[in-house]
Design a protein around this nucleic acid. Structure first.
Lengths: 200, 200
DNA sequence: TTATTTAATTTAACAGTGTTAAGTTATTTT
DNA sequence: AAAATAACTTAACACTGTTAAATTAAATAA
């Protein structure tokens, strides 16, 4: 009944194709509006085939999250390796985080806004997410070493900054009906307020 | 089949009882895990009765949101009417917002994290939510009048602060598995960083 | 090559979901 | 008491995630 003209020759890649198709659908239609049957139809397999590669719908989401986290982690890591003022790198890293979220709103939604309560029973932990946060923390740590901040509690400052940049990102994504000021202006304001708030 | 020993004598209050029961269930079990049938069973009516009082499940959520928003609006409004330093009142208002969210995590989740994308088709707008934000804005405006801030763009500052306090609240609620520093410490840090960042 | 085992995939079904149209009961009005 | 209106329920539709069992295809062994 389903489309038999499969696009993938190598069946070993079926798992990856499910991931790609599911991500695209989640991004376009939203996690809740995508059923396992719809995914299955799109890849040309029966719904149950997906369960041979993923435990359940939540697991499928997890795997997608990990890939998104990984991309973000790579982006912020590449910034950290630039040769610039440590505070400036911190600023750039924060901006990259926000830009990543605004450029891929549904990815961000899936990773940072929705999933944890959706599928928390299995004790979801993202290794890639930890890497992204650790990069922020090491940026902060460098600033402390350079004596550029008024406080030297690296963990506290890092989490404070994360709260701030997550706040503006998630607000702009989920409250899209609210009459926000110009996007770039608000993002800049949040970053500058936070930096100014922690600077020595 | 359903329980006929109805708790409410006055049938005019059925609508309010549905709201109360649904809120309680949403808070305890989460929006997605509560079905119309479960709500109906708890109030002792058939599932379709709910549709006589609410357009659909999303509408039911909206009404609950409005009530939550109203409570928050009352709380922050009562703070604004205290006779204290305007910057101090701003600080207290921000703290009240965060505390409200952490004290009623599922309410906050329903109102500020989830609903807008869940039921955006009908053009959802919260009047009570606007009042809550307007209170914050007028707090900021008073600070500007008192020349306590380094910038006088009231709208921009208000949205920047909202982003910050929403960030820490939502992060603490949804990423409950993350090893955050002590809650009170983080909340204090976010507020102080933001205030310090906008102060003259 | 054929027989057997293993892997890959599907069929059918369960128990649940939001929602609607039509039917029924109860209450109010005439 | 009869008619009209409101309150509520029954039954059904078209979905959902998920599982157990059956089937088909591929790989291995005789």
């Amino acid at each position: 009944m389903a489309n038999r003209n499969r696009l993938i020759a190598d069946k070993e890649n079926l798992r990856q194709e499910i991931l790609d198709v599911a991500r695209e659908m989640f991004v376009v239609e939203g996690f809740a509006n995508v059923s396992m049957r719809k995914i299955a139809e799109k890849i040309g397999y029966s719904p149950t085939t997906i369960y041979l590669y993923f435990k359940d719908k939540a697991d499928l989401l997890h795997q997608i999250c990990e890939e998104s986290f990984a991309q973000l982690a790579r982006n912020v890591l590449s910034i950290q390796q630039l040769s610039a003022n440590s505070l400036e790198k911190l600023r750039m890293g924060m901006r990259e985080y926000i830009n990543f979220g605004l450029k891929h709103p549904s990815h961000y939604e899936i990773v940072f806004i929705l999933p944890i309560q959706i599928s928390f029973e299995g004790g979801y932990e993202s290794s890639q997410g930890k890497i992204a946060f650790q990069t922020l923390r090491s940026n902060v740590s460098q600033c402390v070493d350079d004596k550029l901040l008024k406080n030297n509690d690296v963990e506290l400052i890092s989490q404070t900054l994360w709260a701030g940049i997550h706040g503006v990102t998630s607000l702009l994504i989920t409250h899209c009906g609210f009459p926000f000021v110009e996007r770039e202006k608000l993002v800049e304001s949040v970053i500058e307020t936070l930096i100014s708030g922690i600077k020595a």
